[in-house]
């Protein structure tokens, strides 16, 4: 089993490597090059030449990739094109903010939706299940900014419970921070919880149609015992995958939410970078998002291996 886990981890690292190449290569397929794209139509050949030199574009691509990637894994993402500031110093506090917000939402969403998903599955076809189905379907059908604006309109503008903009700074007291970021966190929670609930429900249901569940009922066991001791241990692997998938989704969902609430996180940083066409910033943010994504998936796969009885008790 250790070998399977090791293989999975190595695979994750290889994927990360391939992704970094892809991110880097993406900037190479530009018509013209980065310099002319950034400076636009009006650039004179002279300024272009200087700018190319400054970016190091006169050297071969693989050399630049090697430099960029070795720098990146040590935390050196270079300098932003627009304001020449070190990217790492801009990214660090923003990354912390984003992780805070995502963690906040995850702590509410995961237990809530997994529990509700299991409940819906147990009560398949009954009123509670159908209600959960319709509400979650509506929630996943709605764009994230719609929920955000609705919450702002009612909870911030009309009732004034929460601020409509989530301005946070480094030495803000923790309780205050929770209060200020409550609206974005709730928005994210609703979004992810709906997905997670539906996926948890369907993975538990697929277990419930297995013959050994029927056998458990025929043994005269109570419904709760069948679900808790016979269905759940087997549903663990799919549920872990569901959680990982949705946490990854949460990381991405954060981008739009940060923009709505003007929250100083890495998502907003990336969107700014994109609108200013600041490629080093975009690359850095892209790599960070992708690493988080790959790490989550790898961890989920390793956990699924760990809970698989066939692998835990080999022949």
């Amino acid at each position: 089993m250790l070998r399977i886990i090791a293989t999975r981890v190595v695979l994750g690292i290889l994927t990360l490597l391939a992704v970094s190449i892809l991110i880097f290569a993406a900037t190479e397929i530009l018509p013209g090059d980065v310099a002319s794209a950034v400076l636009g139509q009006g650039a004179t050949p002279e300024t272009l030449r200087v700018f190319r030199k400054e970016l190091g574009l006169d050297r071969p691509a693989h050399v630049r990739y090697a430099e960029w990637f070795t720098g990146a894994i040590q935390g050196d993402f270079g300098k932003a094109l627009t304001n020449k500031r070190d990217i790492l110093t801009s990214v660090t506090p923003r990354l912390k903010n984003t992780l805070f917000l995502a963690g906040y939402a995850a702590l509410i969403a995961v237990p809530l939706s997994v529990a509700l998903g299991i409940l819906a599955a147990i009560n398949e076809g009954k009123l509670a299940d159908r209600l959960a189905n319709i509400i979650s379907l509506a929630t996943i059908s709605v764009p994230e900014f719609f929920i955000a604006y609705l919450l702002i309109l009612f909870l911030a503008v009309k009732l004034r419970y929460f601020p409509s903009l989530s301005t946070v700074f480094a030495d803000m007291p923790f309780a205050k921070k929770l209060h200020v970021t409550a609206l974005p966190a709730v928005t994210l929670t609703m979004l992810v919880a709906a997905h997670m609930l539906r996926m948890t429900r369907s993975s538990v249901l697929s277990i419930m149609s297995q013959p050994y569940i029927e056998m458990a009922f025929l043994k005269g066991l109570s419904r709760s015992r069948v679900v808790l001791t016979h269905a759940l241990p087997n549903a663990a692997a799919p549920i872990i995958t569901v959680i990982a998938l949705n946490l990854a989704y949460l990381i991405v969902g954060v981008v739009v939410i940060e923009v709505v609430f003007v929250y100083p996180g890495i998502g907003q940083f990336m969107v700014d970078g994109v609108s200013k066409r600041d490629l080093p910033v975009v690359q850095a943010c892209g790599l960070i998002f992708a690493s988080a994504f790959i790490t989550l998936n790898t961890v989920a796969d390793v956990l699924s291996i760990l809970v698989n009885p066939r692998l835990r008790h080999p022949i």
């Binding site: 056998m215 016979h230 241990p233 008790h313």
Partner: peptide, 8 residues
């Protein structure tokens, strides 16, 4: 199929 794979 009728024995639960998760228990001995």
């Amino acid at each position: 199929a009728s024995f639960n794979p998760a228990h001995c």
